[in-house]
């Protein structure tokens, strides 16, 4: 899904150039970000020093054809003054080695900074990271945390290309690249947990939550959706609203699912299986309890 406000930038893909030069690494045309990377950036921003305007760090991830997947990130020390910018390269190397040991698949793909202003220093840092990621291009992700007034939080991603007759490190053009949030389906519930925590007034959520509670919430959502669809269909039938054929087709595909299997005794068979499993589980647990108590008796 998209991150941040939609932009009017046209993402031009230079297909002709990549086709002719197969040996050259391809230009990234799509960037995805894992929540961990994003949340680490936000945390780093919270922990910045008093004098720091923005924080920067390294992005780790994987490359696949034209797509760059940012999987994690770590903070890097840097200082910016009006005259100069300094990035702690030793620190960057050490951290990369530490991360690499744990997760060898992730390599340096680029860097992040908070705030959405690109300046000469951005170009210089970009130049440094390009050397790190060579021969591939380094990407730059700008996270706007939205704490400054009048700025909407969002994430933007860029790649750079040299500009000018004689390319200099401090000159480059940042070309925007579409960016998306991506995570594994299995990680979905973790995000749900966080959103429920974020929506609570104390911004905390207690654990553990019973499975049934979550199930109830899902079923309620489904029944709400059904209600919404029903009212839409009624409106169309009554002629209040013009029907959209596409929606009609989706509805037919979704609701036309066959439930024959369930009706023909499949339900009872399944029910028996589930009940059996439930009995078995309780039996196993009580046996375990009994034998743990028996272990406490002496044979005398």
């Amino acid at each position: 899904m998209s991150l941040g406000p939609s932009s009017s930038a046209i993402h031009v893909q230079g297909t002709s150039t990549t086709d002719t030069a197969h040996n050259l690494p391809r230009t990234p045309t799509n960037i995805t970000i894992h929540p961990v990377a994003l949340f680490s950036i936000l945390d780093h921003y919270l922990r910045r020093g008093e004098s720091q305007d923005r924080v920067i760090g390294t992005l780790l991830g994987t490359r696949f054809e034209n797509e760059v997947e940012v999987r994690s990130s770590f903070a890097v020390l840097h200082s910016e003054t009006t005259e100069q910018v300094a990035v702690d390269m030793d620190y960057h190397r050490t951290m990369y080695e530490l991360h690499h040991k744990v997760n060898p698949k992730e390599v340096i793909v680029g860097w992040y900074s908070t705030g959405s202003n690109l300046n000469t220093y951005s170009a210089l840092i970009q130049n440094f990271y390009s050397q790190e990621t060579a021969p591939n291009q380094a990407i730059h992700v700008a996270v706007n945390t939205g704490v400054e007034e009048g700025q909407e939080p969002g994430v933007k991603a860029f790649i750079s290309s040299p500009v000018g007759v004689f390319p200099k490190p401090e000159n480059c053009v940042f070309v925007p690249v579409p960016v998306e949030l991506r995570f594994h389906d299995g990680e979905r519930s973790g995000l749900d947990l966080l959103t429920s925590a974020a929506n609570a007034s104390t911004s905390t959520a207690s654990q553990p939550i019973a499975d049934v509670e979550i199930l109830e919430r899902s079923i309620l959502t489904v029944s709400e959706m059904l209600d919404r669809v029903l009212s839409y269909v009624r409106d169309v039938l009554a002629g209040k609203q013009k029907g959209d054929p596409a929606i009609g087709r989706y509805l037919m595909d979704t609701l036309g699912a066959s439930t024959d299997d369930l009706e023909k005794g499949g339900f009872n068979a399944s029910l028996q299986d589930t009940l059996m499993i439930s009995y078995l589980a309780n039996l196993v647990r009580s046996q375990a309890e009994v034998s743990s108590r028996l272990a406490l008796t002496t044979s005398s």
């Binding site: 994003l38 945390d43 945390t145 939205g146 974020a198 654990q207 553990p208």
Partner: peptide, 24 residues
């Protein structure tokens, strides 16, 4: 007992993520 907490910055960011947005 365990609680999950999101800091205000994360909360607001998650808020913008979950809020409905017109598709591009």
């Amino acid at each position: 007992p365990l609680k999950i907490r999101t800091n205000p910055l994360l909360s607001s960011f998650l808020g913008t993520l979950t809020e409905s947005r017109r598709p591009t």
